[in-house]
Amino acid sequence: MTLTIRVATRADVPAIVRMLADDILGAGREAYADPLPQAYYDAFAEIEAMTGTEQIVAERDGVIIGSMQLSYIPGISKIGMKRAIIEAVRVDSPLRGSGLGSEMIRWAVARAKDKGCGVVQLTSDKARTDAHRFYEKLGFKGSHLGMKLELK
């Protein structure tokens, strides 16, 4: 079974939303339904149109089994260092713990290097302690305190 990691297409949106909704936090904030709310397709169209942002999927034998969003951000600090941000990493629930997530993150780090980034950043909800251990095993360090302000 061949694993392919690639830039997502519009046809992948339902599978991406299904994985976003399939965890304890996502179940309360996503709206996975048939048909999907148009807002998901609108958001995908914005991502697809942006320079420097990619929705990525992992696919095995034609089935989407993982997803993440990558953004490449230029910066002035650190002598003009470009940064990559990894967001919304998801692995299909039956495959969690299989090593797929590690493959996806290694792929994302290599892609960030190819895009000229000097650092890869991510945030993870404080409640996701298993995810924190996962990222630490891959070499990420909890070097900063991330904060968010919900705008509703």
Rank of each mutant, 00 (worst) to 15 (best):
I65P: 07
S102M: 05
P94V: 10
A112N: 00
G75N: 15
T4E: 13
D34L: 09
K113T: 08
G146M: 04
A15C: 07
S71D: 07
A131Y: 10
T4L: 14
M1A: 10
S124P: 03
R128V: 13
G118F: 03
V17K: 00
K141P: 06
K113M: 13
Y40T: 04
A15Q: 00
A39L: 06
A39C: 03
P35F: 11
D92L: 10
G52V: 02
T4C: 10
I76K: 15
G66K: 05
E48A: 15
Q69Y: 06
V7C: 09
S67C: 12
H132R: 10
D61K: 04
A108H: 11
R90Y: 08
A43M: 06
D23R: 03
G116I: 06
Y41K: 00
R90L: 07
G118L: 03
V91W: 07
L138T: 01
S71L: 02
Y40E: 09
A45Y: 02
Q38E: 14
V89A: 10
M147Q: 06
K82P: 08
M81E: 15
A8L: 13
T2E: 10
G28S: 07
S102K: 09
R83H: 06
L100Y: 11
G101D: 01
L149R: 12
M147K: 11
E103D: 03
G99A: 01
L122G: 09
T2H: 10
R29D: 01
A39N: 03
Y40N: 11
D42C: 11
R133N: 06
G26M: 02
I24T: 14
I79P: 02
A112E: 10
F134T: 09
E30T: 11
G99Q: 01
L25T: 11
L138Y: 02
R96F: 04
P94C: 07
D34E: 05
E59C: 11
P74S: 03
R128A: 13
M19D: 07
G26T: 02
S98V: 11
I16G: 08
Q38W: 05
D92Q: 01
A49V: 13
R60D: 12
G80C: 11
R18K: 12
G97A: 03
E150C: 01
I65Y: 14
F140G: 05
R90S: 14
A15R: 12
T129S: 14
T123G: 03
P94I: 08
K148S: 14
A45V: 02
R29Q: 07
L122H: 07
T123V: 04
G97E: 01
I79W: 12
F134S: 08
G99C: 04
K126I: 15
R111E: 14
V63W: 00
A84L: 10
K126N: 15
G28I: 02
G80K: 03
Y72T: 05
R10K: 12
K152E: 13
A21W: 00
